[in-house]
Amino acid sequence: MAKRVMTVDDSRTMREMVTFTLRKAGFDVSEAEDGQQALDVLKTAPVDVLITDLNMPRMDGVTLIRALRGDPKWRSVPILMLTTESDANKKAEGKSAGATGWLVKPFDPQKLIDVVKRVAG
C-alpha cells in the first residue's frame, strides 16, 4: 500500500508542490491548510509521514508537532518541518517539540522524495 503523507501549509503553492512531487513518486498525499485543520483531519485519517510548514495562521507548525507528540499514537510517526534558512530558531524549536527532520524551502523535488523515503522507511 502506498505510504500516506500529509502536507500542512497555508501556502497553496507549497501544498500543491509537495503533493505534485510526492504523488508522482507514488505516495498517497493529503493536504491541510493549518495545524488545526491537520489535527482535525488526522483524528480520522492517520498518515505515515507528516510534512508541516512552521509559520501558519490558527495553529503553527511547532504547536501542531507538540500536540501530536503528546499523543502516544503519534510517538513513532515521522514529522518533517518545511523551513527556510531564516527560520533557524524555529527549526530548533520544532526539533525540541519532536520533529523528526526538516526540509529547507525551496526544496529540490528529488530531495523531498529522498527525505520522505528516508524517514518513512
Binding site: 497555508d10 501556502s11 503553492t13 507549497m14 508542490m17 509559520n55 501558519m56 495562521p57 527556510t84 524551502k105 525551496p106 526544496f107
Partner: peptide
C-alpha cells in the same frame, strides 16, 4: 505583523521553488 510576515514569507517560499532569484 504576523500576517504580513506570512504573506511575504509565502511569496518568497514559492518564488524560490520557481527560481525567481531577484524576487526571493
Amino acid at each position: 505583523v504576523h500576517a504580513l510576515f506570512r504573506a511575504i514569507h509565502s511569496i518568497k517560499g514559492g518564488g524560490g521553488a520557481f527560481g525567481f532569484g531577484r524576487l526571493v
